[in-house]
Computed example of a mutant assay.
Amino acid sequence: MNPLSINLVKTRAEVPLTIAVTAVNENGEVVDKHVACERPLTVYLNWRPIVTLMTLGARPEALALGYLKNQGFITDAKQLESVIVDWDVNSAAIITTEQTENLEQQLSEKTVTTGCGQGTVFGGFMDGVEDIKLPTPQIKQSTLYSLLKNINEYNDTYKNAGAVHGCGICHEDQILNFVEDVGRHNAVDTLAGEMWINQQDGADKVFYTTGRLTSEMVIKVAKMGIPVLLSRSGVTQMGLELAQKLGITTIARAKGRHFLIYNGSETIEFDAPSKR
């Protein structure tokens, strides 16, 4: 399907992701290093402030759209009129003709989550989750190993400065889209926003993240229509319960030739067992 035509008005939308600093190492020597940037981005919906996100600022338009879509504030991409990012005032304004009469009620219903730092989800976050039907994937163990190897070519900001999470949308062992941010939920929202605008199907995709698999992460991936969740980190009890309910193959602690399948082991073809 073709991407939707949306007027992305940018005002200083590109910002540096890292800055050079000096540090002192364990031997007392001064060394040149880089640190990840972190900046506030206030998201507006029809000029109503919704939330301020702390972000690296890599792809702010997609981040703002993905956040509003995942939280249930907007649902119809065809009614979007513009996305205006202005780093002079640290803002991203989304203009839509979609009706937002329930906005105040949604904003009043919020839950503090286990997001990086302190996250919040709003009243529309769970809307439609029970109606999600995901396909049953089939994945080869050898393909997972190849994917994990290919992932090592990414994480540029992490390699340069640390302090960020990375997320990627993958097909078989290829990484189709990858983004880093100071919080894993910013990264998944960015990818969700781009998938939504580009009208991409998630049925044959794998979602990779360096972060832990909490309930919020599982729900966001389910909303993207992706049936496989792969993480370098661990999984929480509620995240696992939701993955089981939604039928998401859940693979965690994945690094090198090691991984743990917490849900959906029947979807994995063990064609490359590790040598002991």
Results as ranks from 00 to 15, higher is better:
Gly124Ser: 08
His258Pro: 01
Leu260Ile: 14
Asn186Trp: 00
Thr96Leu: 15
Asn198Tyr: 01
Ile169Lys: 04
Pro49His: 11
Thr157Gly: 06
Pro273Val: 01
Gln106Phe: 13
Ile50Asn: 14
Gln244Tyr: 00
Arg253Gly: 03
Ile248Thr: 14
Pro60Glu: 08
Gly124Met: 04
Ser108Phe: 01
Asn102Pro: 01
Thr267Glu: 02
Ser142Tyr: 03
Lys78Asn: 14
Val35Tyr: 11
Glu216Gln: 06
Ile226Val: 05
Ala222Met: 02
Leu148Cys: 04
Cys167Pro: 03
Val31Ser: 06
Asp156Gln: 15
Asn186Val: 00
Arg253Asp: 14
Asp173Gly: 04
Asn70His: 11
Met126Asn: 05
Gln118Pro: 04
Glu266Trp: 01
Leu17Ile: 12
Ser274His: 03
Asp189Gln: 14
Val83Met: 15
Arg232Glu: 12
Glu61Ala: 06
Thr209Cys: 04
Thr236Phe: 07
Met217His: 10
Lys223His: 06
Asp32Arg: 09
Pro49Asn: 11
Val179Glu: 12
Leu240Phe: 03
Arg212Ala: 15
Gly72Lys: 14
Ala243Gly: 06
Thr236Ala: 10
Cys116His: 13
Asn46Ile: 13
Asn102Trp: 02
Arg12Thr: 01
Leu103Gly: 15
Gln174Gly: 02
Ala58Gln: 11
Tyr67Phe: 15
Asp32Val: 05
Asp131Phe: 11
Asp271His: 04
Glu180Gln: 13
Asp201Arg: 01
Lys245Tyr: 10
Asp127Ser: 09
Glu241His: 09
Arg12Phe: 00
Ser265Tyr: 00
Gly211Thr: 11
Asp86Leu: 00
Val164Trp: 12
Pro49Gln: 12
Gly119Ser: 10
Gln244Trp: 01
Asn2Gly: 15
Lys33Pro: 06
Gly256Val: 01
Pro60His: 06
Arg184Pro: 04
Arg184Gln: 10
Met195Asn: 12
Lys133Asn: 10
Asp88Thr: 00
Asn150Ile: 02
Gln141Cys: 07
Gln174Asp: 03
Cys170Phe: 02
Ile169Thr: 06
Asn155Tyr: 13
Arg12Lys: 06
Lys69Val: 06
Thr111His: 10
Val15Leu: 07
Met1Asn: 08
Arg184Lys: 10
Thr113Tyr: 09
Glu180Thr: 09
Asp32Leu: 13
Met54Val: 07
Leu144Met: 09
Arg48Val: 15
Ala62Met: 11
Ser231Ile: 08
